[in-house]
Amino acid sequence: MTEIPGTIAGATIEGPAGPARGYWSNVLRRLRRDRVAVVCIVILALILLAAIFAPLVAPGDPFRTSMLRRLRPIGTPGFPLGTDELGRDMLTRLVFGGRLSLFTGIVPVINAFVIGTFLGVFAGFSGGRTNMAIMRTIDVFYAFPSVLLAIAISGALGAGIFNSIVSLTIVFVPPIARVAESVTTQVRNLDFVDAARASGAGAFTIIRVHILGNVLGPVFVYATGLVSVSMILASGLSFLGLGTKPPEAEWGLMLNTLRTAIYAQPVVAALPGAMIFTVSICFNLFSDGLRSAMDVKL
C-alpha cells in the first residue's frame, strides 16, 4: 500500500522512507506509465494545438464554397478529406470546427467546476439546513435528463454560443456540486479536521487547506470526464439549431448540415461525428488515468 509500483526503479537505497517527491510529480510519473492515458493526451494535444493554430494549420478557407465541387470523396486531390454539401474543404472545416467544439466543451465545465465546487463545499461544510436547502435545490435540476435540461434552457434563452455555454454550465453545476458536497461531508468528519481544529485552525483555514485539498482532486477528475459529455451536448444543441449558427464551423453543426449527404457521401458525412467521438473518448480515458494516478490513498 505504501509502495507505489512506479517508485521501485527510482527509489533511493537510503532507508525505507520512499522518495520524497512532490505530489504532482508523483502523479505525473504514474500517469506516464499509463499508456492509454499518454496516447489520449497526445491525441488531445494535437487536436487542441491544431484548433488553436487553425489559420496556420488548415490548408484552405473554411467558408469558401463552390457549387462545382460539392461532396467530393476522401482523397480528392487538394481536398484530402473531401468537401461538404457546399463544396467547402472538410479538413479545413474540421480543424476550424475544433475551436468552437472544444470551446463549448471545456468552458461550461470550467464554469461549472468553479460554481459547483463552491456550492458543494459550502453546503457540505455548513451541514444542517443550509446543506438541505442547497442540495435539494440542486436535486431539482438533477432530476431532469441533462440533454432535456440543456435543450430547455437553450431554447428559453435563444440560440447562440454564449447561451449554449450558459445552459451547459447550469446542466453541469448539479453533478459537480454533488460530488464536492459528498467528499466535503466525508472529509469534514475525519480526524485530521479535528486535529487541525485542535491545533487552532479556524473554519476558513480548514476549508481552504484541508477541505479544498481533498475535494479538488476527485472533483477535477470528475469534471474531466464531463468535458466529453459537454462536447456532445454542445454538438447536440448545434445540431438542433440551438447552438452555433451556420456558416460557422462546429462539429455538431457540420454533422447536422451533412446529414442530407449521408447516402451520397457516408464517410465524409460521418467525419465530424468521428471527431466528436475521438475527443470525448480521449477525455474519458484520460480522466480514468488521472483518477488512478491521483489516488494517493490507495
Binding site: D191, F192, A195, V209
Partner: peptide
C-alpha cells in the same frame, strides 16, 4: 494540544 488515537487519520493525506 492533542494527540489522536489513529495517526493515519489525524494527518491530512494530501499534504
Amino acid at each position: 494540544s492533542m494527540i489522536f488515537q489513529e495517526p493515519m487519520l489525524a494527518f491530512d493525506p494530501v499534504f
